[in-house]
Design a protein around this nucleic acid. Structure first.
Length: 105
DNA sequence: ATCCTGACTGTTC
DNA sequence: AGAACAGCCAGGA
């Protein structure tokens, strides 16, 4: 181990099934860091900085309100996966929110 | 090596 | 309902 904390975050993000979205706080909680939502956001930001972008579906990570914190490409990608945005630009976490459990195929 | 910035959340008033 | 406070890690200059 001795992996960076970000590595764990990226791993959790990769677990998000297609067509579903997870919140920053949810990712943080599932890897064991309460109140670590910010760290998750930082990790995502680090992806677009200088870090290479592996196959991390960062676009599937949204804020607690169910909307994209950055918008732009993120929203386009989510819609391409079938995620529907409300009139206010928010997603129904009850419908697209990921429970942290991958659906069996 | 140090300082600054960056894609958040829940609680309380 | 809107605003403020506190907690957290890594990378770039």
């Amino acid at each position: 181990m001795a992996e960076g904390l970000y590595e764990r975050i990226y791993a959790a993000v990769k677990r998000i099934p297609e067509g579903r979205v997870a919140t920053y706080g949810q990712i943080a909680a599932m890897i064991g860091i309460p109140r670590g939502a910010r760290q998750v956001g930082y990790a995502m930001a680090a992806l677009g900085r200088g870090r290479p972008r592996p196959d991390i579906p960062w676009h599937r990570v949204v804020n607690a309100k169910g909307e994209s914190s950055i918008g732009g490409e993120q929203i386009s990608r989510l819609q391409a996966e079938g995620v529907v945005f409300g009139t206010n630009g928010r997603i129904d976490l009850k419908l697209f929110g990921w429970d942290g459990i991958e659906e069996a195929e």
